[in-house]
Write a protein that binds this DNA or RNA. Sequence first.
DNA 1: GTTGACCTTCCAGCAAGGGGAAGCCCTAGA
DNA 2: TCTAGGGCTTCCCCTTGCTGGAAGGTCAAC
Lengths: 139, 139
Amino acid sequence: MNIGDVAALSGLPAKTIRYYEDIGLVKPLRSANGYRTFRESDAHKLAFLGRSRALGFSIEDCRNLLALYEDEKRASAEVKEIAEQHLKRIDEKIAELKEMRATLAHLVDACAGDHRPDCPILADLATKQKDEEHLKKTA
Amino acid sequence: MNIGDVAALSGLPAKTIRYYEDIGLVKPLRSANGYRTFRESDAHKLAFLGRSRALGFSIEDCRNLLALYEDEKRASAEVKEIAEQHLKRIDEKIAELKEMRATLAHLVDACAGDHRPDCPILADLATKQKDEEHLKKTA
DNA sequence: GTTGACCTTCCAGCAAGGGGAAGCCCTAGA
DNA sequence: TCTAGGGCTTCCCCTTGCTGGAAGGTCAAC
């Protein structure tokens, strides 16, 4: 298989596949003309990577997951550990975004959004920075 | 004020402040020895930027917000528009993360996490990529 | 033989800074 | 007066995970 074929199969852009070779995630063979030649197992790995990435795993996580996947003697605990860590990071990110969202929604609500210059959003952005310290100190 | 002072005031690292000057967000003066000299208004802007960034606005959003902030004749509608767009992006991101989270939590739950190699997480990562297409085609 | 679709490598860049080197500047203390 | 230290400067590379483009080789079809 050439890179185009495996790209179509895995759903990954050819550029991404070359990059994955670059960083050692896959090791396709080369044919006489210099083209990359992918085996079934390479296509399989790439699909695995695509799926892992889609779940938000970092490249380093993917590398570890792939190694575990290929290790017949792995302990599922190792896989679970990686997944749980990632789950935790996702939860943290969600919490962070929700907090932003709450503040922002509040401000958007308070803003008239008309032709006048008065704007609670700008007022908040302009004043909070010192008030926060103030509040902490005086609280 | 030197950069260290304004860094302490705004809570931004000196590196970040230099970067913000680089990309034209602030324009501190220079004293004879080459040191940056920040006015009150610069400190104010930097705090504004810090707060905007903390709410997740992109640098370009920040640039626009800052311009509106300084424009006495702005329409609050313009500010609101930027904030609403950002709110929308946050909501999309949260939705995306929640979907990842759901899948991942499901898999983690199903995994024994012991010394045995059998692992639903790996099984899922290994098979979903083609099944998905399959499902779409055969559905 | 010549298009046009592939494929190759390399270089540059995105966001939004962080790390660290090499080298001024300024002040305080012995 | 010298020296140590801390702060400041510029510069360039590193990060994550790719993406785009330029310059050029290859291959199958017409």
